[in-house]
Structures are given as C-alpha cells and as structure tokens.
C-alpha cells in the first residue's frame, strides 16, 4: 500500500453516442477522508466513479490513484489499490454469501486463501451482520441483504481506496447508518472513501468532503458546511431545499 497521493482526475471527458456525459473534469480527492459525490440523476456521478475505477475505459484525460495511472497500470495491481462496488443490476450466479465475500480476497490470494484471507472474510461477514446468512445462497436473500454481501466483498479487498456507487440502495436505516459508521472507522484507520450518495443528510453526517456534480460538471466542492447550503443545493437540484442545522451540521429538508 502506497497510501499517499489520493486520486487525481485531469481533463477527463466522456461521451456516449455523441452525448456529452462529462465536461472536462479536474478533481483532486484527498486521501484519508470520506468524500461524498452528490448531484441529481444524470449528473455524471456514476460515470466519473466508474472511470476512476477503470470499469469503463477513459476516453480523454488522465486518472491516477495513489500515483498509479489507471490506464497504464495492470488491473491486478490496481485491485490492490482500490475496491469498487457498482449498482448491481442483478447477480445471476448462485453463490453462497461466504463464497461471494471470499472472492473479494482474489487480488491478494488468487484463489489460494490462507488463514489471513479466511480471517478477513469472517470479519467482514461479522461487520456487515451477515454471519447468520453466510451459508445461504445469494438468490435467497432480500435486496438489502444482497447489498450488504456485496459491500462485505468490496471492503474485504482491504484497499487504501474504496469507491462505492450508491451503496445505500436497498439498505434500511439501521444498516445504512452502520455502513457509514463502518466507513468512518476505516477512514480513522487511514483508508479513503469515495461514495456516491443521494441522501444528503448522510453526506452531511458522515462525509469530510463533498463534491457536487451537475450536467457533467463539478459545481462545488468543499467541507459539508460549505457545499450543503440552501442556494447551492437549490441550484443543484432545481428545487427549493431548506437547510437547517443540527449539532453544527447541515440538516437538509425538502418537504416544506
């Protein structure tokens, strides 16, 4: 683990079938922090996080993760630097929960798990409340349970960077909160998180840094109190948003 450097995005644009998804993006994400990526549907959040995670190929520009150029560096090497969880559109494989989580150790053990790998898997199962489900097949789980299994698989990769695309989907309030607390713990251990969030109060409550995107551009970035303001959010979402305050953190209300 090099642990230094953070994520650097330089001049990244993206077009799909002639439609511009990302305008030239320049962004530096500090390491050792939880960074929330917010913005309306179609802002380009998923595209950006997928380009950083080298899931989709870069069209222009350059992305480095802890100093490693994602275009040049072998994928197997990058898998030791960053873990990615996308928005799963349905897993067809019939794996047991423990088997799925264990595949998260692949970058380390390449199919030959040692005691350390097994211990990491058991710990991840416990951390995500999955031990009672560990021997169940994935297709027997509810959406939220399956989501937790995928999260455990991502976290067990034990990478300096965690990139999570809307991980709170399907999670109930307790498990959503538990996930954010877990990410905060990982941050305290020196790891870094980039997380796409729709619930702004989660961003307010747990993020150290917020990046707001709209129409393929970065509209604002900074600490939550700077970005999560009434004028900024109302512009971001094109809808009136009220921001209060709770224990010094912005409290976002939208039902007024």
């Amino acid at each position: 683990m090099s642990g230094t450097g953070g994520i650097d995005v330089r001049g990244v644009t993206h077009r799909i079938h002639g439609t511009t998804i990302l305008q030239p993006i320049d962004l530096s994400l500090p390491s050792g922090k939880v960074t929330a990526l917010i913005g309306p549907n179609g802002a380009g959040k998923s595209t950006l996080i997928r380009l950083i995670a080298r899931i989709d190929p870069l069209q222009t520009g350059e992305v480095t993760v802890n100093g490693l150029d994602v275009r040049q560096t072998p994928s197997a090497r990058l898998a030791l630097e960053m873990a990615f969880m996308g928005q799963h559109s349905g897993l067809v494989s019939r794996l047991r929960v423990r088997e799925l989580v264990a595949f998260g150790r692949w970058p380390h053990c390449h199919g030959r798990p040692g005691p350390k790998d097994r211990a990491a898997v058991e710990k991840a199962l416990a951390d995500f409340d999955l031990l009672p489900l560990a021997d169940r097949f994935m297709d027997e789980l509810s959406g939220g349970q399956a989501q937790r299994a995928h999260l455990a698989m991502t976290v067990v990769q034990e990478t300096p960077w965690l990139l999570l695309d809307e991980p709170l989907n399907n999670l109930d309030l307790a498990h959503a909160r538990a996930l954010m607390a877990h990410l905060a713990r990982l941050r305290d251990e020196g790891r870094s998180v980039l997380i796409v969030l729709h619930d702004l109060n989660f961003a307010s409550g747990w993020a150290d840094h917020v990046v707001a995107m709209k129409d393929g551009r970065i509209l604002a970035e900074g600490v939550p109190a700077e970005v999560l303001t009434e004028p900024r959010l109302s512009e971001l979402y094109d809808t009136p948003i009220t921001v209060g305050s709770y224990q010094g953190r912005p409290l976002i209300l939208h039902h007024l």
Partner: peptide
Amino acid sequence: AADRFSILGLGVESATALGLR
C-alpha cells in the same frame, strides 16, 4: 481456471474491479 470463470459470472464490472481481465 475455475475461480476466474466464477468471478466472470459475477459480471464484467466485478471481474474488472477484482483485477481480472
């Protein structure tokens, strides 16, 4: 190559994220 095929079965996205080609 059994593990590789199993991981491929998780989808191209997960396989890429785990460092497979």
